[in-house]
Design a protein around this nucleic acid. Structure first.
Length: 488
RNA sequence: GCGCUUGUAGCUCAGUGGUAGAGCAUGCGACUUUUAAUCGCAGGGUCGCGGGUUCGAGCCCCGCCGGGCGCACCA
Protein backbone atom coordinates (compact mmCIF):
# COMPACT_ATOMS: atom_id res chain seq x y z
CA UNK A 1 0.00 0.00 0.00
CA UNK A 2 1.50 3.30 -0.96
CA UNK A 3 1.38 6.45 1.09
CA UNK A 4 -1.68 7.81 -0.61
CA UNK A 5 -3.65 4.61 -0.08
CA UNK A 6 -2.63 4.57 3.57
CA UNK A 7 -3.89 8.10 4.00
CA UNK A 8 -7.14 7.36 2.21
CA UNK A 9 -7.65 4.42 4.53
CA UNK A 10 -7.06 6.65 7.54
CA UNK A 11 -9.62 9.03 6.13
CA UNK A 12 -12.16 6.24 5.81
CA UNK A 13 -11.42 5.11 9.35
CA UNK A 14 -11.91 8.63 10.67
CA UNK A 15 -15.31 8.79 8.99
CA UNK A 16 -16.18 5.32 10.30
CA UNK A 17 -15.44 6.57 13.82
CA UNK A 18 -17.69 9.56 13.34
CA UNK A 19 -14.93 12.10 12.75
CA UNK A 20 -15.45 14.32 9.72
CA UNK A 21 -12.02 14.82 8.12
CA UNK A 22 -13.13 18.02 6.36
CA UNK A 23 -15.32 19.83 8.89
CA UNK A 24 -16.83 23.15 7.81
CA UNK A 25 -15.35 25.09 10.71
CA UNK A 26 -13.30 24.88 13.87
CA UNK A 27 -14.89 23.17 16.85
CA UNK A 28 -13.65 25.93 19.14
CA UNK A 29 -12.51 29.42 18.17
CA UNK A 30 -8.87 30.04 17.43
CA UNK A 31 -7.54 32.24 20.21
CA UNK A 32 -4.15 33.18 18.73
CA UNK A 33 -2.10 32.91 15.62
CA UNK A 34 1.13 31.05 16.27
CA UNK A 35 3.10 34.27 16.14
CA UNK A 36 0.73 35.90 18.62
CA UNK A 37 0.96 32.94 20.97
CA UNK A 38 4.74 32.97 20.94
CA UNK A 39 4.81 36.73 21.42
CA UNK A 40 2.52 36.42 24.45
CA UNK A 41 4.36 33.37 25.77
CA UNK A 42 5.53 34.95 29.03
CA UNK A 43 1.99 36.05 29.85
CA UNK A 44 0.33 32.77 28.91
CA UNK A 45 2.73 30.07 30.09
CA UNK A 46 2.91 30.62 33.88
CA UNK A 47 -0.83 30.15 34.42
CA UNK A 48 -1.15 27.42 31.81
CA UNK A 49 -3.73 29.56 30.07
CA UNK A 50 -5.61 27.42 27.55
CA UNK A 51 -5.20 28.59 23.99
CA UNK A 52 -6.34 27.23 20.66
CA UNK A 53 -4.12 27.24 17.59
CA UNK A 54 -4.57 25.92 14.08
CA UNK A 55 -2.11 24.92 11.41
CA UNK A 56 -0.65 22.34 9.12
CA UNK A 57 1.49 19.54 10.48
CA UNK A 58 4.96 19.97 8.97
CA UNK A 59 6.98 17.63 11.18
CA UNK A 60 5.85 14.58 13.14
CA UNK A 61 8.10 12.83 15.63
CA UNK A 62 6.36 9.81 17.11
CA UNK A 63 8.26 8.76 20.20
CA UNK A 64 5.54 7.14 22.29
CA UNK A 65 4.89 10.71 23.21
CA UNK A 66 4.60 12.74 20.07
CA UNK A 67 6.34 15.93 19.17
CA UNK A 68 5.02 17.68 16.11
CA UNK A 69 5.42 21.05 14.48
CA UNK A 70 2.57 22.95 12.96
CA UNK A 71 2.63 26.06 10.80
CA UNK A 72 0.01 28.67 10.22
CA UNK A 73 0.28 31.82 8.16
CA UNK A 74 2.21 33.55 10.89
CA UNK A 75 4.80 31.01 11.98
CA UNK A 76 5.63 27.63 13.41
CA UNK A 77 5.32 26.05 16.83
CA UNK A 78 6.08 22.71 18.41
CA UNK A 79 3.29 20.55 19.86
CA UNK A 80 3.61 18.01 22.64
CA UNK A 81 1.01 15.23 22.61
CA UNK A 82 0.85 12.54 25.32
CA UNK A 83 -1.43 9.50 25.20
CA UNK A 84 -2.07 9.97 28.92
CA UNK A 85 -3.49 13.45 28.39
CA UNK A 86 -5.48 12.76 25.29
CA UNK A 87 -7.19 9.47 26.18
CA UNK A 88 -9.63 8.47 23.46
CA UNK A 89 -8.46 11.34 21.34
CA UNK A 90 -5.22 9.49 20.81
CA UNK A 91 -7.09 7.28 18.33
CA UNK A 92 -7.50 10.39 16.21
CA UNK A 93 -3.87 11.38 16.74
CA UNK A 94 -2.81 8.03 15.31
CA UNK A 95 -4.68 8.86 12.10
CA UNK A 96 -2.86 12.15 11.61
CA UNK A 97 -0.09 12.67 9.09
CA UNK A 98 2.35 15.28 8.03
CA UNK A 99 0.41 17.72 5.86
CA UNK A 100 -2.89 17.55 7.75
CA UNK A 101 -4.48 20.73 9.07
CA UNK A 102 -5.47 20.46 12.72
CA UNK A 103 -6.79 22.52 15.60
CA UNK A 104 -5.12 22.13 18.97
CA UNK A 105 -6.01 23.40 22.41
CA UNK A 106 -3.52 23.31 25.25
CA UNK A 107 -1.12 25.37 27.30
CA UNK A 108 2.34 26.71 26.63
CA UNK A 109 5.48 25.51 28.37
CA UNK A 110 9.22 25.17 27.78
CA UNK A 111 10.66 21.72 27.15
CA UNK A 112 13.81 20.33 28.68
CA UNK A 113 15.53 21.25 25.43
CA UNK A 114 14.41 24.83 25.81
CA UNK A 115 11.81 24.94 23.10
CA UNK A 116 8.59 26.84 23.59
CA UNK A 117 5.88 24.24 23.05
CA UNK A 118 2.12 23.76 23.23
CA UNK A 119 1.15 20.92 25.56
CA UNK A 120 -1.93 19.68 23.73
CA UNK A 121 -5.06 18.73 25.67
CA UNK A 122 -7.47 18.64 22.74
CA UNK A 123 -6.87 17.99 19.07
CA UNK A 124 -9.20 18.03 16.08
CA UNK A 125 -8.69 17.51 12.38
CA UNK A 126 -9.56 20.34 10.00
CA UNK A 127 -8.43 18.85 6.71
CA UNK A 128 -6.88 15.50 5.85
CA UNK A 129 -3.93 15.51 3.46
CA UNK A 130 -3.89 12.61 1.02
CA UNK A 131 -0.47 13.28 -0.43
CA UNK A 132 2.76 13.60 1.46
CA UNK A 133 4.57 16.90 1.61
CA UNK A 134 7.93 17.26 -0.19
CA UNK A 135 11.07 16.05 1.51
CA UNK A 136 11.50 17.75 4.83
CA UNK A 137 15.06 19.05 4.59
CA UNK A 138 16.09 19.13 0.96
CA UNK A 139 12.63 20.47 0.18
CA UNK A 140 11.46 20.82 -3.37
CA UNK A 141 14.42 21.48 -5.67
CA UNK A 142 13.18 20.51 -9.11
CA UNK A 143 12.61 23.81 -10.88
CA UNK A 144 9.91 22.41 -13.11
CA UNK A 145 7.92 21.08 -10.17
CA UNK A 146 8.44 24.30 -8.24
CA UNK A 147 6.71 26.30 -10.98
CA UNK A 148 4.11 23.78 -12.06
CA UNK A 149 3.08 23.05 -8.48
CA UNK A 150 3.86 26.35 -6.83
CA UNK A 151 1.74 25.38 -3.83
CA UNK A 152 4.31 22.72 -3.00
CA UNK A 153 7.11 25.23 -3.44
CA UNK A 154 5.36 27.60 -1.05
CA UNK A 155 4.99 24.84 1.52
CA UNK A 156 8.44 23.33 1.16
CA UNK A 157 10.45 26.50 0.61
CA UNK A 158 8.34 28.80 2.70
CA UNK A 159 11.18 30.79 4.22
CA UNK A 160 12.28 32.06 0.81
CA UNK A 161 9.06 32.04 -1.18
CA UNK A 162 6.64 33.66 1.23
CA UNK A 163 8.71 36.80 1.86
CA UNK A 164 9.31 37.07 -1.87
CA UNK A 165 5.65 37.21 -2.80
CA UNK A 166 4.89 39.44 0.14
CA UNK A 167 7.53 41.80 -1.25
CA UNK A 168 5.85 41.67 -4.63
CA UNK A 169 2.46 42.55 -3.15
CA UNK A 170 3.94 45.36 -1.06
CA UNK A 171 5.74 46.78 -4.07
CA UNK A 172 2.51 47.06 -6.01
CA UNK A 173 0.55 48.47 -3.10
CA UNK A 174 3.27 51.08 -2.42
CA UNK A 175 3.21 52.20 -6.05
CA UNK A 176 -0.58 52.40 -5.97
CA UNK A 177 -0.44 54.40 -2.76
CA UNK A 178 1.98 56.87 -4.32
CA UNK A 179 -0.27 57.39 -7.33
CA UNK A 180 -3.47 57.54 -5.28
CA UNK A 181 -1.86 60.12 -3.02
CA UNK A 182 -0.88 62.21 -6.03
CA UNK A 183 -4.34 62.49 -7.51
CA UNK A 184 -4.19 59.62 -9.97
CA UNK A 185 -7.27 57.59 -10.82
CA UNK A 186 -6.89 53.83 -11.19
CA UNK A 187 -8.80 52.43 -14.16
CA UNK A 188 -9.23 49.20 -16.09
CA UNK A 189 -9.05 49.15 -19.86
CA UNK A 190 -9.67 46.36 -22.36
CA UNK A 191 -7.44 43.32 -22.43
CA UNK A 192 -9.34 42.03 -25.46
CA UNK A 193 -8.59 44.61 -28.10
CA UNK A 194 -9.70 44.73 -31.74
CA UNK A 195 -6.42 46.50 -32.61
CA UNK A 196 -3.25 46.09 -30.61
CA UNK A 197 -0.95 48.99 -29.94
CA UNK A 198 1.15 50.95 -27.50
CA UNK A 199 4.26 48.86 -27.87
CA UNK A 200 6.48 47.15 -30.38
CA UNK A 201 5.61 43.49 -29.98
CA UNK A 202 3.78 40.53 -31.44
CA UNK A 203 0.34 39.89 -29.96
CA UNK A 204 -1.62 36.80 -29.02
CA UNK A 205 -4.77 36.34 -31.08
CA UNK A 206 -8.02 34.93 -29.79
CA UNK A 207 -11.52 34.63 -31.12
CA UNK A 208 -14.90 35.80 -29.91
CA UNK A 209 -17.53 33.30 -31.04
CA UNK A 210 -20.72 35.38 -30.75
CA UNK A 211 -19.18 38.35 -32.52
CA UNK A 212 -17.33 35.97 -34.82
CA UNK A 213 -14.24 38.07 -34.90
CA UNK A 214 -10.68 37.92 -33.69
CA UNK A 215 -9.36 39.94 -30.80
CA UNK A 216 -5.84 40.58 -29.64
CA UNK A 217 -4.69 40.27 -26.06
CA UNK A 218 -3.26 43.66 -25.26
CA UNK A 219 0.45 44.24 -25.55
CA UNK A 220 0.03 47.51 -23.64
CA UNK A 221 -2.82 49.62 -22.22
CA UNK A 222 -1.21 52.82 -23.50
CA UNK A 223 -3.63 53.89 -26.24
CA UNK A 224 -6.66 53.39 -24.03
CA UNK A 225 -5.17 55.31 -21.11
CA UNK A 226 -4.38 58.22 -23.41
CA UNK A 227 -7.98 58.17 -24.69
CA UNK A 228 -8.86 58.87 -21.07
CA UNK A 229 -6.58 61.92 -21.12
CA UNK A 230 -8.64 63.02 -24.10
CA UNK A 231 -11.73 62.38 -22.00
CA UNK A 232 -10.49 64.79 -19.38
CA UNK A 233 -9.08 62.47 -16.74
CA UNK A 234 -5.86 64.31 -15.97
CA UNK A 235 -4.02 61.67 -14.01
CA UNK A 236 -4.70 58.04 -14.73
CA UNK A 237 -3.03 54.68 -14.15
CA UNK A 238 -3.51 50.98 -14.61
CA UNK A 239 -1.74 47.98 -13.17
CA UNK A 240 -1.89 46.06 -16.40
CA UNK A 241 -1.25 42.45 -17.26
CA UNK A 242 0.20 42.54 -20.76
CA UNK A 243 0.68 39.69 -23.19
CA UNK A 244 3.42 39.50 -25.76
CA UNK A 245 3.87 36.59 -28.09
CA UNK A 246 7.60 36.32 -27.85
CA UNK A 247 10.38 34.26 -26.37
CA UNK A 248 10.84 33.39 -22.73
CA UNK A 249 14.06 34.14 -20.93
CA UNK A 250 15.30 35.42 -17.60
CA UNK A 251 13.65 38.79 -18.04
CA UNK A 252 10.65 37.91 -20.20
CA UNK A 253 7.45 36.06 -19.44
CA UNK A 254 4.68 36.00 -22.08
CA UNK A 255 2.33 37.62 -19.59
CA UNK A 256 3.77 40.23 -17.30
CA UNK A 257 2.67 43.15 -15.19
CA UNK A 258 3.28 46.72 -16.20
CA UNK A 259 2.27 49.81 -14.33
CA UNK A 260 1.39 52.55 -16.78
CA UNK A 261 0.43 56.07 -15.79
CA UNK A 262 -0.19 59.32 -17.59
CA UNK A 263 -0.23 62.86 -16.32
CA UNK A 264 -1.70 65.78 -18.23
CA UNK A 265 0.33 68.99 -18.38
CA UNK A 266 3.46 67.05 -17.46
CA UNK A 267 6.35 66.06 -19.72
CA UNK A 268 9.07 63.46 -19.61
CA UNK A 269 11.07 65.49 -17.09
CA UNK A 270 8.20 65.26 -14.64
CA UNK A 271 7.97 61.53 -15.25
CA UNK A 272 11.66 61.13 -14.37
CA UNK A 273 10.92 62.60 -10.99
CA UNK A 274 7.80 60.51 -10.57
CA UNK A 275 9.55 57.23 -11.25
CA UNK A 276 12.34 58.17 -8.88
CA UNK A 277 9.99 59.16 -6.10
CA UNK A 278 7.72 56.17 -6.39
CA UNK A 279 10.56 53.67 -6.65
CA UNK A 280 12.05 55.18 -3.51
CA UNK A 281 8.64 54.96 -1.80
CA UNK A 282 8.32 51.32 -2.81
CA UNK A 283 11.84 50.50 -1.62
CA UNK A 284 11.08 52.08 1.74
CA UNK A 285 7.87 50.09 2.02
CA UNK A 286 9.39 46.79 0.94
CA UNK A 287 13.01 46.94 2.04
CA UNK A 288 12.88 49.68 4.66
CA UNK A 289 15.89 51.30 3.01
CA UNK A 290 17.12 52.68 -0.28
CA UNK A 291 19.73 50.09 -1.09
CA UNK A 292 19.78 46.42 -1.92
CA UNK A 293 22.33 43.86 -2.98
CA UNK A 294 22.43 42.58 -6.53
CA UNK A 295 24.87 39.73 -6.95
CA UNK A 296 28.21 41.09 -5.82
CA UNK A 297 27.08 44.68 -5.93
CA UNK A 298 25.20 47.12 -3.75
CA UNK A 299 22.64 49.22 -5.55
CA UNK A 300 21.70 52.61 -4.16
CA UNK A 301 18.34 54.11 -5.08
CA UNK A 302 18.95 57.47 -3.43
CA UNK A 303 17.85 60.26 -5.74
CA UNK A 304 18.77 61.95 -7.90
CA UNK A 305 19.53 59.10 -10.24
CA UNK A 306 22.13 59.60 -12.88
CA UNK A 307 20.55 61.17 -15.96
CA UNK A 308 22.44 61.05 -19.21
CA UNK A 309 21.40 61.22 -22.82
CA UNK A 310 21.35 57.95 -24.69
CA UNK A 311 23.83 59.50 -27.10
CA UNK A 312 26.33 60.47 -24.42
CA UNK A 313 26.02 57.15 -22.59
CA UNK A 314 26.65 55.17 -25.75
CA UNK A 315 29.57 57.40 -26.65
CA UNK A 316 31.02 56.96 -23.17
CA UNK A 317 30.65 53.20 -22.91
CA UNK A 318 31.14 52.02 -26.48
CA UNK A 319 33.31 54.81 -27.85
CA UNK A 320 30.95 55.24 -30.77
CA UNK A 321 29.49 58.71 -31.26
CA UNK A 322 26.48 57.88 -33.38
CA UNK A 323 26.01 61.48 -34.45
CA UNK A 324 29.10 60.85 -36.57
CA UNK A 325 27.28 58.00 -38.34
CA UNK A 326 23.90 59.41 -39.29
CA UNK A 327 22.95 56.72 -41.77
CA UNK A 328 22.62 52.95 -41.64
CA UNK A 329 25.61 52.19 -43.83
CA UNK A 330 28.20 54.19 -41.92
CA UNK A 331 26.84 53.05 -38.55
CA UNK A 332 26.93 49.42 -39.59
CA UNK A 333 30.47 49.90 -40.83
CA UNK A 334 31.78 51.20 -37.53
CA UNK A 335 29.84 48.56 -35.57
CA UNK A 336 31.30 45.86 -37.74
CA UNK A 337 34.74 47.33 -37.23
CA UNK A 338 34.29 47.21 -33.45
CA UNK A 339 33.05 43.63 -33.58
CA UNK A 340 29.57 44.52 -32.36
CA UNK A 341 27.04 42.04 -33.66
CA UNK A 342 23.81 43.31 -35.11
CA UNK A 343 21.01 42.39 -37.44
CA UNK A 344 21.83 43.97 -40.81
CA UNK A 345 18.15 44.33 -41.71
CA UNK A 346 17.70 46.84 -38.94
CA UNK A 347 16.81 50.48 -39.43
CA UNK A 348 19.20 53.09 -38.08
CA UNK A 349 17.27 53.58 -34.87
CA UNK A 350 17.23 49.86 -34.19
CA UNK A 351 20.98 49.78 -34.62
CA UNK A 352 21.22 52.40 -31.90
CA UNK A 353 19.24 50.00 -29.75
CA UNK A 354 21.86 47.34 -30.47
CA UNK A 355 24.57 49.75 -29.41
CA UNK A 356 22.72 50.32 -26.16
CA UNK A 357 22.56 46.56 -25.57
CA UNK A 358 26.27 46.37 -26.29
CA UNK A 359 26.80 49.05 -23.68
CA UNK A 360 25.03 46.94 -21.03
CA UNK A 361 26.99 43.88 -22.09
CA UNK A 362 30.12 45.75 -21.04
CA UNK A 363 29.30 44.63 -17.49
CA UNK A 364 30.44 47.90 -16.00
CA UNK A 365 29.10 47.79 -12.41
CA UNK A 366 28.27 51.50 -12.69
CA UNK A 367 25.52 50.52 -15.13
CA UNK A 368 23.79 48.47 -12.43
CA UNK A 369 22.93 51.63 -10.50
CA UNK A 370 19.68 53.37 -11.40
CA UNK A 371 20.22 55.14 -14.67
CA UNK A 372 17.97 57.35 -16.74
CA UNK A 373 18.86 57.39 -20.42
CA UNK A 374 16.99 60.08 -22.29
CA UNK A 375 16.44 61.48 -25.78
CA UNK A 376 15.87 58.63 -28.19
CA UNK A 377 15.93 58.23 -31.95
CA UNK A 378 12.60 59.13 -33.50
CA UNK A 379 12.08 56.00 -35.54
CA UNK A 380 12.02 53.75 -32.46
CA UNK A 381 9.30 55.75 -30.79
CA UNK A 382 6.12 56.31 -32.82
CA UNK A 383 4.13 57.48 -29.78
CA UNK A 384 6.61 60.01 -28.40
CA UNK A 385 6.74 63.74 -29.02
CA UNK A 386 9.59 65.21 -31.01
CA UNK A 387 12.16 67.16 -29.06
CA UNK A 388 12.15 70.80 -30.17
CA UNK A 389 15.38 71.83 -31.87
CA UNK A 390 16.68 68.27 -32.12
CA UNK A 391 15.68 66.70 -35.42
CA UNK A 392 15.30 62.94 -35.37
CA UNK A 393 15.06 62.91 -31.57
CA UNK A 394 12.07 62.38 -29.31
CA UNK A 395 11.50 63.23 -25.67
CA UNK A 396 11.76 59.72 -24.34
CA UNK A 397 13.68 58.06 -21.56
CA UNK A 398 14.29 54.61 -20.22
CA UNK A 399 15.15 53.64 -16.68
CA UNK A 400 17.73 50.93 -16.20
CA UNK A 401 18.22 49.20 -12.91
CA UNK A 402 20.38 46.20 -12.06
CA UNK A 403 21.19 45.87 -15.74
CA UNK A 404 17.52 45.52 -16.67
CA UNK A 405 15.36 47.89 -18.63
CA UNK A 406 12.84 48.82 -15.97
CA UNK A 407 10.73 51.54 -17.55
CA UNK A 408 10.16 53.52 -20.67
CA UNK A 409 8.52 56.93 -20.77
CA UNK A 410 7.96 59.92 -22.95
CA UNK A 411 6.36 63.22 -23.54
CA UNK A 412 3.26 61.86 -25.21
CA UNK A 413 2.64 62.65 -28.83
CA UNK A 414 -0.67 64.54 -29.01
CA UNK A 415 -0.42 66.00 -32.51
CA UNK A 416 -2.95 63.92 -34.48
CA UNK A 417 -1.40 64.66 -37.85
CA UNK A 418 2.08 63.74 -36.68
CA UNK A 419 0.65 60.64 -35.01
CA UNK A 420 -1.05 59.54 -38.22
CA UNK A 421 2.18 60.08 -40.13
CA UNK A 422 4.11 58.01 -37.57
CA UNK A 423 1.59 55.19 -37.81
CA UNK A 424 1.83 55.28 -41.58
CA UNK A 425 5.60 55.08 -41.32
CA UNK A 426 5.15 52.03 -39.08
CA UNK A 427 2.91 50.50 -41.71
CA UNK A 428 5.68 50.92 -44.26
CA UNK A 429 8.05 49.11 -41.90
CA UNK A 430 5.43 46.40 -41.38
CA UNK A 431 5.03 45.93 -45.11
CA UNK A 432 8.80 45.82 -45.27
CA UNK A 433 8.71 42.68 -43.17
CA UNK A 434 8.89 44.01 -39.60
CA UNK A 435 5.99 42.14 -38.00
CA UNK A 436 6.52 44.03 -34.76
CA UNK A 437 5.93 47.45 -36.24
CA UNK A 438 2.87 49.13 -34.82
CA UNK A 439 -0.47 49.16 -36.60
CA UNK A 440 -2.60 52.17 -37.46
CA UNK A 441 -5.33 52.77 -34.91
CA UNK A 442 -7.76 55.16 -36.60
CA UNK A 443 -9.98 55.47 -33.59
CA UNK A 444 -6.99 56.54 -31.51
CA UNK A 445 -6.01 59.19 -34.03
CA UNK A 446 -9.60 60.38 -34.05
CA UNK A 447 -9.39 60.75 -30.27
CA UNK A 448 -6.25 62.87 -30.64
CA UNK A 449 -8.12 65.00 -33.17
CA UNK A 450 -10.65 65.79 -30.45
CA UNK A 451 -7.70 67.01 -28.43
CA UNK A 452 -5.34 65.51 -25.85
CA UNK A 453 -3.55 67.80 -23.43
CA UNK A 454 0.25 67.67 -23.39
CA UNK A 455 1.19 64.85 -21.05
CA UNK A 456 3.93 62.68 -19.73
CA UNK A 457 3.49 58.93 -19.54
CA UNK A 458 5.46 55.92 -18.38
CA UNK A 459 5.34 52.15 -18.19
CA UNK A 460 7.20 50.41 -15.38
CA UNK A 461 7.95 46.69 -15.47
CA UNK A 462 6.70 45.51 -12.11
CA UNK A 463 8.13 42.02 -12.35
CA UNK A 464 11.58 43.41 -12.98
CA UNK A 465 11.30 45.88 -10.13
CA UNK A 466 10.42 43.00 -7.84
CA UNK A 467 13.36 41.02 -9.23
CA UNK A 468 15.66 43.89 -8.28
CA UNK A 469 14.21 44.32 -4.81
CA UNK A 470 14.38 40.61 -4.04
CA UNK A 471 17.70 39.88 -5.71
CA UNK A 472 16.36 37.38 -8.23
CA UNK A 473 17.84 37.29 -11.70
CA UNK A 474 15.01 35.29 -13.27
CA UNK A 475 11.53 36.69 -13.88
CA UNK A 476 9.78 33.37 -13.32
CA UNK A 477 11.01 33.42 -9.73
CA UNK A 478 8.85 36.46 -9.01
CA UNK A 479 5.75 35.25 -10.89
CA UNK A 480 3.65 32.75 -8.95
CA UNK A 481 2.66 30.71 -11.97
CA UNK A 482 5.11 31.42 -14.79
CA UNK A 483 4.32 30.26 -18.29
CA UNK A 484 5.52 26.73 -19.02
CA UNK A 485 4.91 24.36 -21.86
CA UNK A 486 1.93 22.12 -21.19
CA UNK A 487 2.61 18.46 -20.61
CA UNK A 488 1.11 15.90 -22.97
C1' G B 1 13.14 28.93 -33.56
C1' C B 2 18.63 27.03 -33.08
C1' G B 3 22.71 24.80 -30.04
C1' C B 4 24.28 22.37 -25.61
C1' U B 5 22.47 19.73 -21.54
C1' U B 6 19.08 17.04 -18.52
C1' G B 7 14.80 13.36 -17.11
C1' U B 8 16.20 6.81 -12.20
C1' A B 9 11.05 5.37 -5.95
C1' G B 10 6.32 10.42 -3.35
C1' C B 11 10.88 14.04 -2.51
C1' U B 12 16.53 14.72 -2.78
C1' C B 13 20.02 12.11 -5.48
C1' A B 14 23.95 7.88 -6.70
C1' G B 15 24.34 4.28 -10.62
C1' U B 16 31.59 1.79 -14.75
C1' G B 17 26.97 -2.38 -21.43
C1' G B 18 26.07 -7.80 -17.16
C1' U B 19 20.48 -9.32 -11.00
C1' A B 20 17.92 -1.24 -10.29
C1' G B 21 20.46 1.63 -5.20
C1' A B 22 20.83 5.32 -0.82
C1' G B 23 18.72 9.15 2.44
C1' C B 24 14.12 11.26 3.62
C1' A B 25 8.98 9.87 3.29
C1' U B 26 5.53 5.33 3.99
C1' G B 27 4.14 0.48 6.95
C1' C B 28 5.29 -2.71 11.37
C1' G B 29 8.14 -2.91 15.99
C1' A B 30 11.18 -0.44 20.22
C1' C B 31 11.52 4.10 22.97
C1' U B 32 6.67 8.80 27.81
C1' U B 33 10.57 16.09 27.05
C1' U B 34 12.05 15.06 21.15
C1' U B 35 14.69 18.93 17.75
C1' A B 36 16.34 17.00 10.26
C1' A B 37 14.89 12.32 16.93
C1' U B 38 17.25 7.42 16.97
C1' C B 39 17.41 1.99 16.27
C1' G B 40 15.50 -2.71 13.81
C1' C B 41 12.53 -4.93 9.94
C1' A B 42 9.48 -4.32 5.53
C1' G B 43 6.96 -2.53 1.18
C1' G B 44 7.73 0.79 -2.84
C1' G B 45 10.45 1.37 -10.05
C1' U B 46 6.98 1.51 -17.51
C1' C B 47 14.91 4.20 -15.22
C1' G B 48 10.10 10.54 -19.46
C1' C B 49 7.81 8.03 -24.23
C1' G B 50 8.78 5.26 -28.82
C1' G B 51 12.15 2.83 -31.91
C1' G B 52 17.18 0.82 -32.88
C1' U B 53 22.25 -1.51 -31.91
C1' U B 54 23.71 -5.72 -28.76
C1' C B 55 23.73 -12.44 -26.39
C1' G B 56 22.42 -8.49 -22.89
C1' A B 57 20.62 -1.24 -22.53
C1' G B 58 19.12 3.09 -16.86
C1' C B 59 23.99 3.50 -19.58
C1' C B 60 25.30 3.47 -26.74
C1' C B 61 22.36 5.49 -31.41
C1' C B 62 17.74 7.93 -33.65
C1' G B 63 13.01 10.36 -32.99
C1' C B 64 9.36 12.59 -29.77
C1' C B 65 7.79 14.99 -24.95
C1' G B 66 9.12 17.98 -20.56
C1' G B 67 12.95 20.91 -17.85
C1' G B 68 17.60 23.88 -17.54
C1' C B 69 21.43 27.02 -19.76
C1' G B 70 23.04 29.89 -23.95
C1' C B 71 21.79 32.32 -28.64
C1' A B 72 17.93 34.68 -31.40
C1' C B 73 13.48 37.75 -30.50
C1' C B 74 11.74 41.22 -26.99
C1' A B 75 10.25 44.79 -22.16
Amino acid sequence: MDEREVREQKLQELRANGTEPYPPRLSTPRTHTIAEALAAFDALAPDKTPITLVGRIVLWRDKKVIFANIEDGSGRIQLYLRPDDLGEQFDLVKKLDRGDFIEVTGFLFVTKMGERTLHVTHVGILSKSLRGLPEKHAGLQDTELRYRKRYLDLVANREEELPLFVARARTISALRRYLDDHGYLEVETPILQPIFGGATAKPFVTHHNALDRDFFLRIAPELYLKRLLVGGIERVYEVARNFRNEGIDRSHNPEFTMLEFYEAYADYNVMMTRVEEMTVAAAQAVLGKLSFTWGEHEIDLSPPWRRVTLHDAITEYTGIDYDQYPDRESLMAIMRERGIKFDARRAWGRLIDELKDEMFRSADPALLQPLILYDYPLDLSPLAKKKPGAPGTVERFQVHLAGMQLATAFSELNDPQDQRARFEDQLVQREGGDDEAQVLDDDYVEALEVGMPPAGGIGIGIDRLVMAFTGHDHIREVILFPTLRTMD
